[in-house]
Design a protein around this nucleic acid. Sequence first.
RNA 1: GCGCCAAUAGCUCAAGUGGCAGAGCAACUGACUCUUAAUCAGUGGGUUCGGGGUUCGAGUCCCUGUUGGCGCACCA
Length: 504
Amino acid sequence: MTDQDRSTSVDGAENLPEQMRVRREKRKRLLDEGVDPYPVTLPVTHSLAEVRAAHPDLPADTGTGDRVGVAGRVMFLRNTGKLCFATLRGGDGSELQAMLSRNEVGADSLTAWKSDVDLGDHVFVHGEVITSRRGELSVLADEWRVAAKALRPLPVTHKDLAEETRVRQRYVDLIVRDQAAETVRTRAGALRSLRDSFHRRNYIEVETPMLQTLQGGASARPFVTHSQAFDMDLFLRIAPELYLKRCVVGGIEKVFEINRNFRNEGSDSSHSPEFAMLEFYEAYSDYDSMAELTRALIQEAADSLFGTQVVTWADGTEYDLSGQWSTLTMYGSLSEALGSEVTPETSVQTLRKHAEDVGLTQLDPGYGHGKLVEELWEHLVGDHLYAPTFVRDFPVDTAPLTRQHRSEPGLAEKWDLYVRGVELATGYSELVDPVTERARLEEQARLAVAGDEEAMPVDEDFLRALEYGMPPCGGVGMGIDRLLMALTGLGIRETILFPLVRPE
RNA sequence: GCGCCAAUAGCUCAAGUGGCAGAGCAACUGACUCUUAAUCAGUGGGUUCGGGGUUCGAGUCCCUGUUGGCGCACCA
């Protein structure tokens, strides 16, 4: 839209929709009358919520003698001849009624109210706190002023916006749809709960680079950008892992970060190109104790937000996050689903046969043992998991930064946490042997040279860090957006305030 | 990336087989001193997403572009 230029000129507003033209004319009229439609400050003495809290059980048709100055957005107007009502809403979502009586404000002021104030405007009202005859807590105005004139009409408040408008104009969605505002608060509450949980356990929060010189820490295609000053390409990070491990080497042995990752991939109901990630590492922990901690973090978040670990989703479904969660092994559950034993020794040929038998016919011919096992598992088991489930012990060749299983050859000490069939978190006993790690990264680098855009190169500085000695360590990555999905039942684009959309 | 579906008033949505583009809310004018999505009477408001085509006639059919949703593929 380029209509900001027209706002100063009524002439230029001719081709605007009627309702926008009318509001611009009202703004201009106020200015011509010497009234600032956007005053810099107003004598607000109480929030709407504070007024409500101060008078919880006032009987109908009662005065209090309390005089307050309040402000809010006009959500509904009910103007009669000599007595007007407006529902004001404050930034915390609380509402309070304003009453304007001709006896209190005078005929001119009441006429001005009726002609100048539109739905969506912010207004300031000063007066006595009373209840109406119907019992509605109200401020009976002795003075009122426009606090901020809205130039666009509010959408209908009792219907949701179309989905595209909700995402493109979230600011309007937040005004109109309670669920949108509620989701923002739920997300903030979940983040606060996570930080509280970590601080109780003496974790240190850090921030590590978003601009990285090497792609690493996960298998994903990165976004590439360019530094003019350094004259070099940089990657937006796909994961903070390699820096958080450097922290552990340096002695920050209980460390977490909550920040954005960027992956150059498509989006759907559970994927977004930029997404919030929690990663945490703890020295002398392993994937078992990290699974316990992960469960505690999620359950504490549910308790903190809703006072229960049986959460109710937006569609009314109850989802039980309480108690212990079930555990499967990848090979065990896959063998059971196939009705045929699969182990780390099972040949690629046999796995391909299994894949064809279950209808997975267009798998990349370059897939090795581990990737085939994962594909089969996701198809036969993962997609059908509903209750929270830890899936343990992955093929070692799919987890280049993970320690070999302490007793089972060919396996890595890695788990994935599935909630409602979506991968919510992944945990590891971290690989800390620099020599083994170098061999793993060199293999990754070979894949990268061969054209695998998701494989990482050898990060010499990271290997140097490991060579100084990294203590035994457990690590976890958890998608914050997906945690919100698990807690609310919403799609990922509802949990992200401003998801990426193409420009209009 | 491939397939299917959609885009109409400020907002949410209607308009069998091609035949005067409508409703609710919102807006405008008037009435109303206790309303709660106030009520009553009246009025205005449209590049039917953009471009091209078929037709006497296109919101509707065809081609094309843009944007979005869903499914599949990839990823967490």
